[in-house]
Design a protein around this nucleic acid. Structure first.
Lengths: 121, 121
DNA sequence: TCTTGTGCTGGAGTATACTCTAGGTTGTAG
DNA sequence: CTACAACCTAGAGTATACTCCAGCACAAGA
């Protein structure tokens, strides 16, 4: 798969793909005539990167995970630990987010009451 | 309340408080001898800013809300609309976050199985 | 062969949200 | 009255995550 196809598939820019490679998130991409040729495995990995990013993991942390991954199966325990840590953080953030959402809903309800009052007076 | 006290109360830096003021998120702070004196109302507002930020609202958007707020009660409908929009976005993000968390949990389980396999062989 | 499209690299530029510095002012305690 | 802490402003610097550009390479169709 060419870089432009990968970019479209994942809804990211060609620039970003090359940028991730420069950072070391993506490694060992096959080249044909100097041009990147993404394999199936690369695509799966890029999708996973996207998911980690979607959960707010910084690229520097993804880089750490990436290095472990490219080093092979001997790093599974470490990778698991990294993900578990992230998971716990996320779960905490989720709770806080839900609290803040509730607060937001209350504020909106309050505004609705104020609108009604202004309407009737 | 002095700026250093406010900073400590909310766990942010003095720099950030002044930065928010420069951006217009915080306005009309009383000065005594050139020094900021935060009133109760300001503190409530700063807490709300923190909550909006915690839900991922960019400062530029908080700025819009801030302007409406400082313009008084006539802007309540607009403020409500802004918060509702943000709320809907958040609810969607929450769903996605939960999906990604599930994915993470699965990955972790997978790693656990791989660890076991490696242990018994 | 020439043009076009797609790709390449290194490095510069942008947006967001801080974070810090230099150089000066204010208020209080000794 | 002076030393000191805490404050002030304007502007520079940093981190993160892109985003774009100049200048060049290469392969395929007219």
């Amino acid at each position: 798969m060419r870089i432009s196809e990968v970019a479209e598939k994942f809804g990211i820019s060609i620039h970003t793909l090359r940028y991730y490679e420069k950072l070391g998130l993506i490694q060992r991409i096959i080249r044909k005539g100097g041009k990147r040729e993404y394999a199936e495995e690369d695509l799966g990995w890029i999708e996973f990167i996207q998911r980690l990013k979607a959960t707010g993991m910084p690229l520097s942390r993804i880089r750490v995970y990436s290095d472990l991954r490219y080093r092979g199966d001997s790093t599974i325990s470490e990778r698991k630990r990294l993900l578990q840590e992230h998971q716990q953080q996320l779960e905490q953030e989720l709770v806080e987010l839900e609290l803040n959402l509730q607060m937001l809903r209350k504020k909106i309800t309050l505004y609705e009451e104020m609108e009604k009052k202004n309407g009737t007076v």
